[in-house]
């Protein structure tokens, strides 16, 4: 697998570490609604197909990326910087 890092270019997958499902948004930190927290911490959509996920370029620039990747073909569909993605997602 090769992932095009916005900073470092097309790099081998071995340089990155998978950081999980990027479809989740963290609940309000002051909330103690256990159903909401349980869903966030323990549940996953686990898409068969194009899946949005975080990757850390840990042997490169150490930026987190939001990668859309097909979990059946491993094809990388899109890559964005996580910071930018998260800032834009926020209302």
């Amino acid at each position: 697998m090769r992932i095009p890092c916005p900073f470092c270019g097309l790099r081998d997958g071995v340089e990155f570490s998978y950081q999980g499902d990027a479809n989740r948004t963290r609940p309000d930190p002051v909330s103690v609604d256990q159903t909401v927290w349980n869903d966030h911490v323990f549940n996953r959509v686990n898409t068969r197909g194009v899946h949005r996920e975080f990757w850390l370029h840990n042997h490169g620039c150490r930026a987190h990326l939001v990668v859309e990747r097909n979990t059946v073909t491993h094809e990388i569909v899109s890559v964005a910087l996580a910071r930018q993605f998260v800032l834009e997602r926020k209302p």
Binding site: S17, Q19, A22, R26, F54, L56, N58, R62, A63, H64, A82, R83, Q84, V86, L87, K90
Partner: peptide
């Protein structure tokens, strides 16, 4: 280190 970076990049980029 990964934990701190994750929260800074993906949860609290602000």
């Amino acid at each position: 280190m990964e934990h701190l970076e994750f929260f800074l990049d993906c949860i609290w980029p602000d």
